[in-house]
Amino acid sequence: MGRRSGLTLRASAFALLVATAFPALAQEKPDGIVAIGGSITEIIFALGASDRLIARDTTSNYPAAAQDLPDVGYMRALSPEGVLSVDPKLIISEDGAGPLETINVLEAANIPFMTVPEEYSAEGVAAKINAVGEAIGEGDKAKQLADDLKARLDAVVQTAQKNAGQEPKKVLFILSTQGGRIMASGQNTAASAMIQMAGAQNAATGFEGYKPMTDEAVISAAPDAILMMEREGDHNSTVAELLALPVIASTPAGETGAVIRMDGLYLLGFGPRTADAVSDLSAALYGS
């Protein structure tokens, strides 16, 4: 069984696999760690093990100190040369790192490459924290952090549901508006899970993942609010530009100017700050 296939499991089973497949890592505190994925980096910092990080990927922009580490590239477009240049002893990654050719080269170099799967729930975040903690020899700290976060997140979700009342708002998460086309989040995504935890409903139904929506579909979705990431680059749109699109202007969100923008890693990372992100999103939607 290859490392990648053997370690890409449900997060709740990951910690046990680390202890059995890599007993040395489970018993020691490995250094020379490369973190691939913003939530992985956040967790390692939160566990007080940042001194053992030697590099991170481009998506790892929090905390600010993480940006002082060497950047090995974007997690979905890694080059073997960039990762190997920092002489890693352990690579811990969110699901989706690639391309596969790069992962194969890293595995051939006998570098433990651990992929932690995503589960967009309170249980999933807790399991991710525990998995990373076991991998870096900080299991006890991870359990405390995971338990505290899950308790806080459960409480925040309950409050958000109460604030929503009997008529939860419909929220459309827009990934981009490049070329005037609306790329939105359907079901089974981080964005959809965050919307639901914040006491709202995903306005986009009938598809999974992130896909373009026709103007007719956007109008039919009739979102009460639009949610977007704050980021730079070709996919960035100001609120004014968004509201100027005829299809958006014709929706309830467009008519009231209800556009919420949040940092992408904070909103969608499902890491240690998830409870705060849900609370902030709920407050933006319902005012409390």
Rank of each mutant, 00 (worst) to 15 (best):
M1H: 11
G6L: 12
S12K: 14
A13T: 07
F14P: 00
F22P: 00
A26N: 04
K29T: 14
K29G: 12
K29A: 15
K29H: 14
V34Y: 06
A35G: 02
I36R: 03
I36G: 01
G38S: 13
S39V: 08
A46R: 10
L47V: 04
S50C: 00
Y62V: 09
A65Y: 00
V72R: 06
G73R: 01
M75N: 06
A77E: 12
S79G: 11
E81H: 12
G82W: 11
L84W: 07
P88I: 05
L90P: 02
L90F: 03
I91N: 02
G96D: 02
A97C: 13
E101N: 07
V105D: 00
A109E: 14
P112G: 11
F113H: 03
F113L: 15
M114F: 14
T115H: 05
P117A: 08
E119S: 12
Y120T: 01
A122Y: 05
V125W: 01
A126F: 11
I129P: 01
G133I: 07
I136G: 00
D140T: 11
A146M: 10
D148W: 02
A151H: 12
A155C: 00
T159R: 15
A160Y: 12
K162T: 15
G165P: 09
G165E: 14
E167C: 00
P168I: 09
K169V: 08
K169Q: 15
L172C: 01
L175K: 05
G186R: 09
Q187S: 13
T189L: 10
A190D: 10
S192K: 07
A193P: 00
I195F: 07
Q196C: 03
Q196T: 15
M197S: 02
M197D: 02
A200Y: 04
N202W: 06
N202Q: 08
Y210W: 08
T214H: 05
E216V: 02
E216R: 03
A222H: 07
M228Q: 10
M229G: 04
R231I: 05
R231W: 08
E232R: 11
G233Q: 03
H235L: 11
A249Q: 09
A249H: 03
A249G: 06
S250N: 12
S250G: 01
T251W: 13
T251F: 14
A253M: 09
E255V: 11
D263M: 04
L265K: 01
L265I: 09
G269D: 05
G271H: 04
P272E: 03
S279I: 01
